[in-house]
C-alpha cells in the first residue's frame, strides 16, 4: 500500500487517491486534425521509468496535484503543484 505525500495533508495511503493519468497533455482546439485529437485522447508515453502524472486526494482534501514517479519502482521523485509545468527530464 503505497504512501503518497499529499501537498496539503501529508503522507496518506494510496487508496485515498485517484490517479488522473499522464500529466502535461495539452488539449488541442476544435480545428485540429483527427490525428492530433487521437493523440490527445489516447496516445500516451506509458514509460517504464520516470513518469509525470496527476493525482487527486479524493478521500481527503479533494485537491489535484502532480507527481513525478518511477513506474517500475513506484518511487515518487517529487510532488509538485497542479499549476507547475513539466519537469525537465534531464534536470
Amino acid at each position: 500500500m503505497k504512501r503518497i505525500d499529499c501537498p496539503w495533508c501529508g503522507p496518506r495511503a494510496e487508496n485515498e487517491f485517484t490517479w488522473g493519468g499522464e500529466a502535461h497533455i495539452v488539449r488541442p482546439g476544435l480545428s485540429c486534425g483527427d490525428g492530433q485529437w487521437r493523440d490527445y485522447l489516447f496516445t500516451r508515453s506509458n514509460p517504464r521509468g520516470a513518469h509525470q502524472e496527476r493525482w487527486c486526494h479524493t478521500y481527503g482534501c479533494a485537491q489535484w496535484f502532480h507527481v513525478a514517479r518511477d513506474t517500475l519502482t513506484h518511487r515518487i521523485e517529487r510532488v509538485y503543484a497542479i499549476d507547475e509545468g513539466p519537469v525537465d527530464a534531464t534536470g
Binding site: T58, A62, I82
Partner: peptide, 13 residues
C-alpha cells in the same frame, strides 16, 4: 462532481 473539479482545478484555473 469529480469531473467538474478535475477540469476546474487542472485545466481551467
Amino acid at each position: 462532481a469529480f469531473w467538474m473539479e478535475e477540469w476546474r482545478q487542472c485545466e481551467w484555473r
